[in-house]
Design a protein around this nucleic acid. Structure first.
Lengths: 232, 232
DNA sequence: ACCTGAACACCGTTCAAGT
DNA sequence: ACCTGAACACCGTTCAAGT
């Protein structure tokens, strides 16, 4: 009578894959692509892997840890060597950063993770390396390049974070309308400066503003010497 | 027998204050100060106000909406007119932005809200107004000032968001150690640029880096003309 | 109009117990 | 060592019902 639990050996279905750090990251990326970061939770991911949430804690200490790993994975798709070789080093830096930003924007909310916990994986290092060499091409002094990269990446990351999750795409117009109304409605007696500048505070496409931002940073990095801490 | 529910009229305790947008914001700020944004939830806030979470939805559409209101409230404490009148306009701008950043840092995670949904309340407008006038003092062309303010505030906000919630203060050293190890461990054959720059990628106090960042932006804003979209 | 309790549909993380 | 189910302590938001 002992119905020995036949192990139903030959797989009856896609053979539940063995758990591993890489397998989990792969599944996480696919959940991210299909449902967004909001749904990339330990529980949701576990169910995608046909296991329980607790099992994931063998591989990741926390949700933040998981997000960092996923981010590093995505950073692998950044284009470090743009096709077009012509163009100044400025242009090439700008293109690399644009690629970085669009990867982050595509995966929305993830950019905010990047802001909170700086990545330090191999793909991030490769990006830093590339930026360093481009700044070197432009004869930017090494000490400024070192700090400048932080600024450039912070800017690119922030813009992605901003665009990233302005809620669902639906309320972007609503929100811009709010800001726009606030600015336009600003009484010119209380806010004369704002009234004088007017529409220009909001003008320009995101792309134009982004490009100008990079230009400002590069010009500034070339112009502003690093502070010298000297004991007079 | 009808024990008419005596309204126990004269207050037996601090007289539950009437609900109102302002009262809720005040309570929210105090929860924020005492427990941090992580605990500033609809439910927690409701219980501080001795009511149910559902009641708050009469005044705020969502948690994001609530956070925006709280942020605007805090922006009221930014120092727009530093005492010391001496110093260049550069210094004064730097001081205003520093005040803005420290307000955001003090209330940690909130900076991330600022990144996602740009504030548009009166206190934010006052800040923009002040920055405009300082840039005007520095003879920065109006069109560049308009876009430049965005850059300056984005930078200040991002830095606050970065410092804001690197998890609990405990693991900041751990995280910096991770980055530091990653950078130092970077094989000099694979990452020659990083190896060459070395420690300098991580050098400097946060304050020095912040100050340099502002200097870079101001120099860049003065140097980089706005793009002209001309139909040749 | 405002307020409420209860419900729906979720979370992260821990832990004792199994293999 | 790895995996699991169940539990603990929470969430945001909606809704019918009350005042």
């Amino acid at each position: 009578m002992i119905a020995s639990s036949t192990p139903r050996s030959r797989r009856e279905r896609p053979a539940k894959p063995a758990l591993s750090r890489d397998a989990i990251i792969a599944a996480a990326v696919s959940v991210l692509r299909e449902e967004g970061l909001k749904h990339l939770t330990m529980r949701r991911l576990a169910s995608a892997l046909d296991t329980g949430a607790a099992s994931l804690y063998v591989y990741f200490q926390s949700t933040a840890d998981l997000h960092a790993a996923v981010l590093d994975e995505l950073l692998g798709t950044v284009t470090l060597e743009p096709e077009a070789i012509e163009g100044s080093w400025n242009d090439r830096i700008s293109r690399v950063l644009t690629s970085y930003t669009s990867v982050l924007i595509a995966h929305a909310t993830l950019a905010r993770s990047a802001l909170v916990s700086r990545p330090s994986g191999p793909n991030y290092l490769a990006l830093v390396e590339r930026l360093l060499s481009l700044l070197d091409e432009g004869d930017v002094p090494r000490d400024r390049a070192a700090w400048g990269i932080d600024l450039l990446l912070l800017f690119a990351t922030s813009l992605a974070a901003e665009h990233g999750t302005r809620g669902s795409a639906d309320d972007i117009p609503a929100q811009e309308a709010a800001i726009s109304t606030a600015l336009r409605g600003a009484s010119s007696s209380r806010y004369p400066g704002i009234a004088a500048v007017g529409e220009d505070l909001l003008s320009g496409s995101p792309e134009a503003r982004y490009a100008w931002g990079i230009a400002v940073l590069l010009a500034g990095i070339e112009a502003a010497p690093r502070p010298i801490r000297e004991t007079s």
